[in-house]
Design a protein around this nucleic acid. Structure first.
Lengths: 253, 253
DNA sequence: TTATTTTGAGTGAAATTGATTGATTTTGAT
DNA sequence: ATCAAAATCAATCAATTTCACTCAAAATAA
């Protein structure tokens, strides 16, 4: 596994749970302890995490500075760009599904402030932001996951089955040629699949940091799904992208 | 368990009750007494707590109330007191329902930080705060109300009907002799009733400012419901309280 | 090919941990 | 108030884990 990929995996894991342990990263990446140690040192040098004995934690921001760092988070601009594009797809008088996750949160931030749009989401953060922006929102019901603040489970699933959407905007953790779309959690994987099945059009929000990343659970996307990526992905991983293009409908921004 | 984890846990526990005991921390974290002792020393060094014989207490800040106006501060104190009392009623391994609203939000703030407690709520704010405090939470599904951030509707209702709780903590807008318990919204009123019906024990969180207030929709409480009020209510509205006592189980704090 | 970078393994140093000791403080009964 | 028992504390030590560093092998680039 390349340094770039390990680095992205580490940061992705860290964004989902406040701390990562070195031993866990060793088993997850298959790299040696020395290598992981070096990676963590490099990432700390970049100011992207704080090393602690036994692993690493998120950098803790003080008060008002928090917003700043959120913007400085490596992929924020990419996510914002993709979110902006998605927001142009949303028409008034439509019911749309927005998945939990950081990329889709950006979408809520820039969504047209229109009372006629009906947003359905399984993300508590998404719901709150939509409320603050005065957008109508419906939450799925069920247990809330600690790390991702996503709602998943049988109740949410059954609730989704009765709905249908003109658009679904889905987040995803990994995309690779071998395993396709993957994510970290079975419940959430099922919710993603179900939401996509109920949707007329589908956009999966990703970026180059997710390419060649493989997580535990596969997610099958319907044929009408379009995967959104930034152009940099084509530059960074041309081979993977080329192979993926045979099986997925990729769209570059 | 990483030092970071223990540190967060200790501070979390401290935020919900003014003091923590070393022995309690030992059992909760699974670490040895020596380790906990060292943690407390480190945290004291950081100025995050003060050690006392047998455990540690919060470091007292000067003028914490500065920001709030006097009226807000008093109102907040009443709610905090009632919330604190409610938190003592919650036992581990229990499933409890917490209604949306400001009074119940205080309850979430001081709820024991125990993974074995299952919180079910229809309040988005409640859910988020519980998540931040590391408490397991399940959200009801459905449309979210703009002003109250409460989830209500047929989906939430049906979801509730399948559940049962050892305790329900309900917020309410008004209490009067003529109309009993009243609130501002039909959907929310129905959710409150349904939640109460599914609960073994019920506490309705109120204060003197709600007495003699009448809103549009009546809420019928089961006989086992106990209404919590501050003692000031008895002083301010002795007649109303006296008459109410014939029909409701009032409890003064 | 050679030069450069990246990686994995090994080493001893450093940090963390849990147990033990005896001193100190608190508690409760007289 | 006084004393003994219990609880809590600080200090130390050995075992374990984690760390930083070095060096050779492997991968990559020139």
């Amino acid at each position: 596994m390349l340094f770039q990929h390990r680095k992205e995996k580490i940061l992705n894991l860290l964004s989902e749970s406040n701390t990562v342990r070195i031993h866990d990263l060793v088993t997850r990446t298959g790299a040696s302890e020395s290598t992981i140690r070096r990676d963590l040192m490099a990432l700390e040098e970049e100011g992207l995490l704080t090393r602690v004995h036994g692993g690493a934690t998120k950098v803790k921001n003080i008060g008002i500075e928090q917003k700043m760092s959120q913007k400085e988070s490596i992929n924020h601009e990419i996510k914002a760009k993709i979110a902006k594009y998605c927001s142009t797809l949303v028409k008034p008088n439509s019911q749309i599904y927005i998945d939990a996750g950081t990329a889709t949160l950006e979408l809520v931030r820039v969504l047209p402030n229109d009372k006629r749009i009906q947003v359905v989401t399984n993300g508590v953060d998404q719901a709150l932001l939509a409320l603050q922006r005065g957008i109508n929102v419906t939450l799925l019901g069920g247990p809330v996951k600690q790390n991702t603040h996503a709602i998943a489970g049988i109740t949410a699933y059954q609730q989704l089955e009765r709905m249908n959407f003109s658009f679904a905007f889905i987040g995803m953790n990994g995309l690779s040629y071998e395993n396709g779309l993957t994510t970290t959690n079975l419940d959430e994987a099922m919710i993603k699949e179900c939401a996509m099945q109920q949707s007329h059009k589908i956009r999966i929000l990703m970026d180059n940091s997710k390419i060649d990343q493989i997580y535990e659970f596969k997610v099958n996307a319907p044929t009408q799904a379009i995967i959104l990526l930034n152009k940099q992905a084509k530059v960074n991983s041309p081979d993977t992208i080329h192979k993926l293009a045979n099986h997925f409908d990729l769209h570059f921004l």
